[in-house]
Simulated assay, not measured.
Amino acid sequence: MSTFVKNAWYVAAWSREVGRTLLSRTLLGEQVLLYRREDGTPVALVDRCPHKLAPLSLGELKGDHVQCGYHGMTFDCTGTCVRVPGQQNIPPTARVTAFPLVERYGAVWIWMGDPACADIGTIVDVPHYGDPDWGLVDNQYLHFRSNYLNITDNLVDPAHTTYVHKNTIGNAAGEDVGVKVEQGDAHVLAYRWIRNAPPVPLVQKMANFSGMTDRWQYYYLHLPSTSYVDFGCIESGTEPTEDNKDRGFRSFSFNFLTPETETTTHYFWLHLRNYHAHDSAVSADVERLMTLTFEEDAVLLAYVQREQERTGVREYTRLGIDNAPARIRRMVERLIAQEAPLADKQGDARTTADACGA
């Protein structure tokens, strides 16, 4: 059974990746063709000619249309075949699926489920995006050799930072600090405050704290697989208001996970910060340090995936810190169940509202 939620927006590519060259990418187990029309509008089609199943990406663009490189069948932006060389009639089966797209935050988002459910209002909000007082590192990508749910487990787990990321965003001060969990209709939040502690290496490098700090980690996971981390610190004892946090050291890291296959994941990310916003050298350093942090996760989770496949077991023991990951997996399971064919004994199909989770 697939672990993919289809009725959701996923990042298919950064906007700068999609142009007048045919781009093929595996998304949710499906091969997808991406390109731009002559007016700049992005297009996404199933990358498979319905005749002999040759990848359309091996063909070429003819204006806004795609010509298959095998027998020349030509498809428009809706996936409708508009030409079959050598014959006048076009079979009704000569079409490919087209997917809704929207561009936001410098990325092309794709909806691979029921088009009637594609609500752009469900795309997560990115605070301070476009704010000139906040520095931005974007267009970042990593490839994880892990199922996306192992990564979402990791992204609502502040406790692992003490051990996995001790060279960047963690230190020993957080070892015995518990994690609190809150749940909404479409998100889970795991968070903790580490008070009166030395600043972590990243803060030591980028900020100018003279003494102990109070540090927060707020890990949000918006279903099915968009994560953002509100991370920062203030002088120890400072009242933790939003204004004081914005005046302290603060960043928002957004991680847009798009399943590639059941065992691999596209990991798109961007990072916003309130410190040294206009310093390109700091941006380069943040990019390097955050990439190091995510690569530490990628290496560890690849081993986790390997052992899960070898043993057929996800975990033998559950800990208190697994509260948030367990909630997310249950919520994802419910979404997948809503999308599965729901038929009663008479074989009646579900309604669109059921499929969209209404």
Results as ranks from 00 to 15, higher is better:
146 S>H: 01
121 G>P: 08
99 F>W: 11
64 D>V: 06
87 Q>H: 08
148 Y>H: 11
155 L>G: 11
104 R>F: 02
136 L>N: 03
147 N>K: 00
84 V>T: 15
136 L>V: 12
148 Y>S: 05
62 K>L: 12
57 S>R: 02
121 G>M: 07
136 L>Q: 08
142 L>H: 12
112 M>T: 13
143 H>M: 03
125 D>S: 12
168 T>A: 06
57 S>P: 13
150 N>W: 02
157 D>Y: 09
89 N>W: 01
168 T>N: 05
143 H>I: 01
112 M>Y: 04
82 V>H: 07
111 W>C: 05
119 D>W: 10
148 Y>T: 02
76 D>M: 10
158 P>Q: 05
159 A>Q: 10
108 V>G: 06
124 V>K: 00
150 N>K: 01
62 K>R: 15
126 V>A: 09
124 V>H: 04
61 L>I: 04
147 N>A: 07
104 R>A: 10
109 W>R: 05
128 H>T: 02
82 V>A: 12
65 H>R: 15
116 A>L: 14
56 L>P: 14
85 P>Q: 09
146 S>P: 00
61 L>H: 06
105 Y>S: 02
140 Q>S: 14
153 D>R: 00
115 P>I: 07
118 A>L: 09
104 R>Y: 04
137 V>S: 05
69 G>N: 11
68 C>E: 06
81 C>H: 08
167 N>P: 00
134 W>H: 13
125 D>P: 06
125 D>H: 13
102 V>P: 05
158 P>N: 06
113 G>M: 03
124 V>T: 15
88 Q>R: 15
116 A>Y: 02
118 A>E: 06
145 R>H: 14
115 P>G: 08
71 H>P: 13
134 W>V: 03
128 H>S: 04
163 Y>T: 10
106 G>S: 08
119 D>G: 09
115 P>H: 02
65 H>Q: 14
122 T>Q: 15
89 N>L: 10
153 D>M: 02
92 P>N: 12
84 V>Y: 04
149 L>F: 06
130 G>K: 02
101 L>P: 04
58 L>A: 09
119 D>C: 10
94 A>G: 06
129 Y>A: 03
147 N>V: 04
127 P>M: 01
134 W>Y: 14
161 T>Y: 11
100 P>K: 09
155 L>A: 04
100 P>Q: 05
136 L>R: 04
116 A>E: 14
111 W>R: 04
59 G>T: 11
136 L>C: 14
